[in-house]
Design a protein around this nucleic acid. Structure first.
Lengths: 216, 216
DNA sequence: TCTTGTGAACAAATTCACAGCG
DNA sequence: CGCTGTGAATTTGTTCACAAGA
């Protein structure tokens, strides 16, 4: 397992989700074609991705669901668990907290922050909320290393700097702004406007002529 | 403008956002390096993207903000406007409606749907809501061609089929499920779990050694 | 000297094609 | 056979390096 390509990481997360479904159903093995279909990938992609993490299946039988799951977990999960903090308790922030609540035990949102004192104090879906000033203290106390940014664009850069200051080294950015961060901090952007405009553009293209392919 | 690459579409949307900011500030021209910095791209990328849409700047002065904006709009916007419908009026669905409310006049969410009769009837942030049964009728009446899926994973495939049935040809999918759709329908996935796991993984990598680069 | 525009080199990601195993 | 694993080819996306214009 020398180096795992960027996109492979994303797909491994998808594979894991499907493998968990299979596990619940009592399915014990799966072949690349099936896993591909469940995740929207191709069979070769699945095999290449598993090659990247040095996982081997067996010809004719495919991959062992439970063993593969634990190989993926070895790569994606920190054994001691990882904690995330969310900043921006607006509509979107609350929806995000609710979305993740109890979903992944090894990666939980353990605190939320907001500038507005009126929004903090009580819990949101079990997640304690704090005023911005306490970000540094709480982040260090809870060993938080991922920050989720759900603040308006104009505040994003400033908050990102506070997150970095608080020792966070991964940011999931929902704000429509390009963050400037030190290069030892990773930023993953979710830009709903860009995604919607993309969907709209390709919808328009496809309504006319069946040219390019869907997805990605 | 023969063929515009997939990723270029996404970046054009980003450029537009920044150009609008510049326009408001009264800035009339911008060079590739500045636009790159504002959007997290590189200067060459900007120039290549603009090449792809046959837009030319002038040496030494750069690009004319207003003219470039209108070139991008020519590509991304349907002159008559495009309409989107959202399905799933939960926390996330409501947050999405609020997020987009009044943001892009040429691309608005004009209707929302839910299976639960208790959730429909009144408006959510100005957006009328309907029971699922009316999807087909409303979609056709309003000429909707983009669907936003904010339903639980187990309902995603069924709802996607209903969207396709209603004539939608672009889907923005927030549900953690791989949709199977006809190939003349475009799907753009926003998978918050995958994105968060990616951020967590690379955060972990970066905490150790300054190896890979941030962003995408 | 700053810019843009772009061929050419490069890198990343995907797909093809097929060897090899049970 | 039907499956995995993988070199090789291909496609896609990015960066380099530099000509040319103002």
């Amino acid at each position: 397992m020398n180096h795992v390509p960027h996109k492979t990481i994303g797909r491994l997360s998808l594979y894991r989700r499907s493998l968990n479904t299979l596990l619940e159903q009592g399915v014990t093995s799966v072949c690349s074609r099936e896993l591909a279909q469940m995740t929207g990938a191709t069979a070769v992609q699945v095999r290449r991705d598993l090659m990247a993490i040095d996982y081997s299946g067996s010809p004719m039988r495919g991959y062992d669901v439970a063993r593969l799951l634990s190989s993926i977990a070895d790569l994606l999960d920190e054994p001691s668990g990882q904690r995330a903090a969310l900043v921006g308790i607006g509509n979107l922030g609350r929806a995000i907290i609710t979305y993740f609540a109890g979903r992944r035990p090894r990666l939980a949102i353990v605190a939320a922050f907001d500038i507005d004192p009126a929004k903090v104090g009580r819990k949101v879906n079990g997640c304690p909320t704090f005023p911005m000033q306490e970000l540094g203290r709480v982040a260090r106390r809870e060993c938080i290393d991922v920050g989720i940014l759900a603040v308006p664009a104009h505040a994003a850069q400033e908050v990102a700097e506070q997150l970095v200051e608080a020792g966070i080294c991964g940011i999931l950015n929902f704000a429509p702004a390009a963050l400037i961060v030190p290069e030892d901090v990773f930023v993953e952007d979710i830009d709903m406007t860009v995604s919607l405009e993309k969907a709209a553009y390709f919808a328009r293209m496809l309504r006319k002529k069946p040219g390019p392919r869907r997805r990605n």
